[in-house]
Design a protein around this nucleic acid. Structure first.
Length: 417
RNA sequence: GUGGGUGUAGCUCAGCAGGUAGAGCACUGGAUUGUGGCUCCAGGUGUCGUGGGUUCAAGUCCCAUCAUCCACCCCA
């Protein structure tokens, strides 16, 4: 048996990679118009970074991280998400000293040791954006508008933007207590998982899919009704902006996040087309995160999209690879070297050209030209060579004409433009 | 970590109650001694995931194992 790839880590082959390139290029283009700049951080960080930002008690940190010791016995971890690394870099390079506002985006592989299934892999890719330094609700709206602009630009629809607010250190503890008391009285009707994490993370029960839990928590107190005045005002303003801008959304008071750093505005973009892994993008505000990582007390908000999930949603329509302008079909040694030289000259000018290197029959060469969807086939055989011409065939129109070899490069260059 | 499904040609799959493998697509060549896409003809490839067991005989039945997919869980 030959060597295979690692479970849950996939190759992206020609045919599919064009979709990836399209999604990435569109992200760069759209994010740039909103003033976001790309940041690239290493795929590996000190383990402590993720423990402190994501939260010790989260599933990601507890059981999903690729953590190991390097040759110096330092504990390092393959990044399970992008925000922590971006914040670390932001603090480390004192980016706040240059500009009070930082708008950054990133894209690249993330790693989580989970059981692979549809839309969930051990190496997966995220495209994310972070806006640091602003707590004005307009930036919340801006982030959401940019996200929906992007999803629109790549042609993914039938999505729902769900919004919630998780409050802040002012109001969340009190709400948590209330919820705890509420759940306490219904502990018997909750599922095993909910009972187990009841004390550590009571919010989770709101998100549980077990029917019994849904029933038991149907009239549970909602964070949205218990926000402090500043959180409430912030959330109202975010919604007001979204309404002004005509960005549709729905409120989901039961939405919970898997990472501990979220505060206030949180959101998720969900689809009905991906089975169990229905989140296409998600994010929220993380006002305490930078400070807790040793930086200044700056607020921030961001999101991340799952590229594999976007690709799955786009997989109906194949994005075509660019077609060559010319295919050179040559017969005979002299013609071959002539054609090869010409092809290379055109390629150097940035014109996409192909030829056959296996000495095949003209028929076979034509077939290949057709398969590659070349726009023109340039045929040079002994006859043409003797007459000092080449036959240039328009593959779509199925017409062809002779062009003198002396002016061939010039004519083809003109044809390609 | 827990369940279930599936592993046969490069790809998608068929193979009925056990008798040592087949189709379509793709690929190559030809019909058209130098002209693609349509049509027709011809051609090749398989340790039937792996290892055991039952049997005169196993792709087919049994066990184990690995891989993969989907779901739980979790999340992007």
């Amino acid at each position: 048996m030959s060597i295979t790839g690692i479970k849950g880590m996939n190759d992206i082959l020609p045919g599919e990679v064009e979709t990836w390139q399209f999604l990435e290029e569109t992200a760069r283009r759209v994010f740039r118009t909103y003033g976001f700049a790309e940041i690239r951080t290493p795929a590996v960080e000190k383990t402590e970074l993720f423990c402190r930002s994501i939260g010790e008690a989260t599933d990601i940190v507890e059981k999903e991280m690729y953590t190991f010791r390097d040759k110096s016995e330092n504990s390092i971890t393959l990044r399970p998400e992008g925000t922590a690394s971006v914040m670390r870099a932001f603090i480390e390079h004192k980016m706040y000293a240059q500009d009070p506002v930082a708008k950054l985006y990133y894209l690249g592989p993330m790693f989580r040791y989970e059981r692979p299934q549809k839309g969930r892999y051990r190496q997966f890719h995220q495209i994310g954006a972070e806006a640091i330094g602003v707590d004005d609700p307009r930036i919340d709206a801006q982030i959401l508008v940019m996200l929906s602009h992007y999803l629109d630009a790549v042609g993914i629809d039938e999505l729902e933007l769900q919004l919630n607010s998780l409050g802040c250190p002012e109001c969340r503890p009190a709400y948590r207590e209330q919820l705890l008391v509420f759940l306490e009285r219904r502990l018997e009707s909750l599922c095993e998982d909910c009972r187990r994490r009841h004390a550590a993370n009571p919010l989770r029960s709101l998100d549980c899919k077990v029917p019994g839990c849904r029933e038991a928590t149907a009239d549970a107190p909602a964070m949205l009704d218990r926000l402090c005045s500043s959180c409430d005002e912030h959330f109202n303003r975010v919604q007001g902006r979204l309404q002004d801008l005509g960005t549709p959304y729905t409120l989901n008071p039961r939405m919970v996040r898997g990472l501990d750093y979220y505060t206030k505005t949180t959101f998720e973009v969900v689809t009905g087309k991906l089975g169990a892994q229905n989140a296409v993008a998600a994010g929220g505000r993380y006002d305490g995160l930078i400070r807790s990582l040793g930086g200044p007390p700056l607020p921030g908000i961001g999101f991340a999209m799952g590229v594999e999930r976007l690709v799955l949603l786009k997989s109906q329509e194949r994005i075509a690879a660019p077609r060559p302008d010319f295919f050179f079909a040559a017969l005979g040694e002299q013609a071959e070297s002539r054609a090869f030289g010409l092809m290379c000259a055109l390629q150097r000018k940035g014109i996409q050209a192909e030829t056959d290197l296996e000495g095949k029959s003209l028929k076979a060469q034509m077939r290949r030209a057709g398969k590659l969807q070349a726009r023109f086939t340039v045929i040079i055989g002994e006859d043409e060579l003797a007459r000092g011409v080449a036959m240039v065939r328009d593959m779509d129109g199925a017409t062809q004409k002779e062009i003198p070899l002396a002016e061939l490069e010039e004519s083809l260059t003109a044809l390609a433009s």
